[in-house]
Design a protein around this nucleic acid. Structure first.
Lengths: 253, 253
DNA sequence: ATGCAGCTTGGTGTATACACAAAAGAAAAG
DNA sequence: CTTTTCTTTTGTGTATACACCAAGCTGCAT
């Protein structure tokens, strides 16, 4: 008699975690107005858990950067300017560059190289197809995996933690802005370039060319800058970006 | 009738904050054995506040990186290997480098430049004196201030947040390892070099030489690497570093 | 009509009680 | 003497009650 699935209570999955996930979802979907105070009691009745786990979730989401502490107490939904998003992407690029350099300088195991190469091969397969046929969802998934493998290659817990934190801003994560390309006529062009950078950085790491690996990853992140600019001028594109509701839109006449 | 100071209750300073500060102190002073579980109830009687604020403090210190979540629940005092400390310093250097580059590329206000220059002048004064006379405490304070000004110049909330986080590891903060030099015969030598880097990076920012500013800050952080190595071979030096009890010592015969 | 005072209503900070899981210790069997 | 199992204890996850602060509103006086 396994009661695990009963009422969705998985044991081991605490109320706090459930509240955290649900709250993050609410924030990212824009169901909580940006800048507005998040009332604990409202969340209690909305999430169906008591105040304690709600409270814990709020604290964790603040540390995550999605909420902001109000001086007089409580939390509000954070908003991001275009500049902040740009900077978050630049930070990610810088840290991924550091990861790539460390991996290159220290050398990586054959297993890691193999995994990365396999991942790239699968991505090649996706990109190689005709434009209309590209399975973007699969590309995004593989892309995220490649970036994860890369971070793993650096073998640095501290660095992984920092990267995890900057990628918590959903629009700053490695593949957040990829879907924006799907509406672009040059999607194939951009994907080709990004994929080439993937290959190049792996080659650089394999040859222990640290400086090169770092430079490539930095530039690689800047593709997201371009996509961001495109999305900021076009609401339809923007809708494809998770958490985009938190970004203060440019004023447009 | 102001009751503020009564019983040390400052109002505005919540129990949670008090618990957080007290707990951090306990961890950093090594009064909680590294790796050991931190019992909430023990902390309750040790800190004199109830479980709720203790709990909040534990969560915050985990996010800060000083504690580690135990899978089965609760938290333990985190320990750091030499490698991790090294990497934390490298991350700080990288992010400070990014800050310097952004500041240089974007340009900074005259006020900021003036503040930084004033700070440097004060440090020059300290360093200029004869070795035995150097007021290291004042140098450390000014050094921290200079680094803060520099981060401020980048004018990036996101970057400041990330740097705050990596500097939360007390031994990774800009001036954590400075005191180690005090026992070194070459203290004046190292201080001179570090101070020259300060001057150079400010000049580079002023001239908008982004790449140079970045490179200098990266190398600047690596002075801490040297100090770390020195401290790791010498317990007396190690005792000068805050939070050093969390660092797993090298095995020595 | 307007300004001020007091009240009323959310709202968070804190303490504590209860329930369940995990680890430690004791007792019994091999 | 060792091993296994059961009991006990410790510890955290969760819910909830209470206290205090802050802000908004209403009503009265000017």
């Amino acid at each position: 008699m396994i009661k695990a699935a009963e009422k969705g209570n998985d044991r081991s999955v605490t109320q706090t975690v459930r509240a955290q996930l649900a709250l993050r979802d609410l924030v990212l979907r824009g169901e909580l107005n940006p800048g507005e105070r998040v009332s604990e009691l409202q969340m209690v009745e909305r999430l169906g858990v008591s105040r304690t786990p709600v409270r814990m979730a709020l604290v964790r989401l603040e540390e995550e950067g999605l909420l902001e502490a109000i001086p007089s107490g409580g939390f509000s939904v954070k908003t991001f300017s275009e500049k902040e998003v740009f900077e978050a992407i630049e930070i990610r690029g810088t840290l991924e560059g550091l990861a790539a350099r460390l991996a290159a300088e220290r050398g990586v195991s054959r297993t890691d190289l193999r995994n990365a190469a396999d991942c790239l091969e699968a991505m090649d397969e996706v990109v190689r197809r005709d434009k209309a046929e590209i399975d973007l969802l699969r590309y995004v998934e593989l892309n995220a995996r490649f970036h994860d493998i890369l971070i793993g290659m650096a073998d640095s817990q501290a660095l992984a933690r920092q990267l995890e934190r900057v990628s918590a801003l959903p629009f700053a994560s490695p593949s957040a802005l990829v879907p924006v390309q799907s509406r672009s006529p040059e999607m194939n062009h951009i994907l080709t370039i990004a994929q080439d950078q993937h290959h190049c950085v792996l080659a650089a790491i394999e040859r222990r060319e640290g400086a090169r690996a770092e430079a490539i990853m930095r530039e690689h992140a800047r593709i997201a800058h371009r996509n961001l600019e495109r999305a900021l001028t076009n609401q339809r594109d923007m809708d494809l970006v998770p958490g985009s509701v938190l970004i203060k839109r440019r004023i447009r006449a």
